[in-house]
Simulated scan of single mutants.
Amino acid sequence: MGRGRRGQIAVIFTSRRTANDGVGYDRAAAQMEALAAAQPGFAGFESVRGADGVGITVSYWQDRESACAWRDHPEHSRIRQLGRDRWYRSYSITVAEVERAYDWTAP
Rank of each mutant, 00 (worst) to 15 (best):
P40F: 03
V23I: 14
I9P: 04
G44C: 07
G24Y: 12
R100N: 08
A106D: 10
L35S: 01
R78C: 06
V48R: 08
P40Y: 07
A28R: 15
S90N: 08
P74E: 13
Q62N: 01
A96L: 07
Q31P: 09
A29K: 04
R64E: 14
R6S: 13
F45K: 01
S47K: 04
G83I: 03
V54Q: 11
V58P: 00
W104I: 07
G44D: 09
T18D: 04
G55K: 01
T14K: 05
S90P: 00
I9Q: 04
G50K: 03
D52F: 08
G4L: 00
Y25Q: 02
V11W: 02
E65Y: 04
V95E: 03
Y102S: 11
E99N: 02
M32A: 07
A43M: 04
T18E: 09
R3D: 09
I56Y: 01
R89C: 12
G83H: 05
R78F: 12
E46S: 08
M1P: 02
S77C: 15
Q31E: 15
W104G: 08
F45R: 05
G44E: 05
A37Q: 13
R49T: 12
N20M: 10
Y102Q: 06
G2R: 02
E46F: 00
W61P: 02
H73K: 07
A43N: 06
R86M: 13
E75D: 14
P74F: 13
D72W: 10
Y88S: 11
I93W: 05
S47A: 15
Q62S: 15
D26E: 15
I79M: 02
A96M: 01
V54L: 12
I79P: 03
Q31N: 13
R64G: 11
A96P: 06
A29V: 10
S92A: 14
D103M: 00
